[in-house]
């Protein structure tokens, strides 16, 4: 089993090659290439306007690239170019093998529908047709993200910000995706709530061997969660490497500026 896992980990899950995106004359993303392996957490850091959110949209197939391509190794082991997938295939991928955690939980949740149904929706979308089992699985996931199962029938609009974000995570992870995209998942939360969420994410990622691409402007989040970092500026990746290397031994002037701008813990 260990050998099998090692074998699978040996092939990249997602490969980006020379990805570029222009909006008119503005190049939002230029020539980005990297490989992501199963279980690997990659943080994309940079300030607002650096192109990190555009890159996330390109990688998750929400935006068509002006140049380059993204290939993803499907569950059958075959790598496919995202642009070559039909819409049905892409949407299927989106609600099974991928997850997307938005900064604003209202974007990723159905705010008027109960927490249980929010978590169960992906299961029903792939054909689960047994209420009891759907509910049991949903309640299991609420426990895993530390939400009291007594709240399973409450709509997320009655939840606090931190709970909503944890519910969004459960909703995404219920189909056991292999890759999760996260866009500033801790943005807008109180510091103590952030710490709890990061800690939860950290253990779930390790437990499920999730690959994660996380966009953040918060280097502390990158340090706590990610194995690798890509620093973006002006649409380009200016520095990339092991997270502790880049943050402890930054080389580029801009990275040094970013690192030196953090307040000491």
């Amino acid at each position: 089993m260990v050998d099998q896992a090692a074998l699978e980990n040996d092939q990249p899950l997602l490969v980006a090659t020379s990805l570029s995106k222009s909006f008119g004359r503005i190049a939002a993303c230029r020539d980005v290439s990297f490989s992501l392996y199963p279980g690997e957490v990659l943080a994309i850091v940079g300030e607002s306007g650096s192109g990190k959110s555009t890159l996330l949209q390109l990688l998750s197939g929400q935006l068509a690239a002006s140049g380059g391509h993204v290939s993803y190794r499907m569950r059958d082991g075959v790598a496919r170019d995202l642009a070559s997938l039909g819409e049905a295939e892409r949407r299927f991928l989106y609600r099974t093998d991928w997850g997307f955690v938005h900064q604003d939980p209202a974007q990723g949740l159905r705010m008027a529908v109960s927490a249980g149904a929010n978590v169960g929706e992906r299961l029903m979308a792939v054909g689960w047709n047994h209420y009891g089992r759907i509910r049991e699985t949903a309640s299991d996931w609420l426990t895993r993200v530390e939400i009291d199962t007594a709240r399973i029938d409450d709509a997320p609009r009655t939840y606090s910000g931190g709970m909503r974000q944890r519910l969004q995570i459960a909703r995404n992870l219920v189909t056991e995706p292999r890759l999760v995209f996260m866009d500033e998942p801790t943005g807008g939360l109180d510091v103590s709530v952030q710490a709890r969420l990061l800690d939860l994410l950290r253990s779930l990622v390790a437990e499920l061997n999730l690959a994660v691409i996380i966009v953040t402007h918060d280097l502390a989040v990158a340090r706590l969660l990610s194995h690798r970092v890509m620093v973006m500026k002006g649409g380009r990746v200016i520095e990339a490497g092991l997270t502790d290397q880049v943050l402890d031994d930054p080389r580029e002037p801009y990275t040094q500026l970013l690192v030196s701008s953090i307040l000491p813990p």
Binding site: V113, S114, G116, E121, R135
Partner: peptide
């Protein structure tokens, strides 16, 4: 695309 999971969400809500 015959994506009808959402229909069951409504029925789920009823039962819940």
């Amino acid at each position: 695309l015959a994506e009808y999971g959402l229909m069951h969400v409504k029925l789920y809500e009823d039962i819940a």
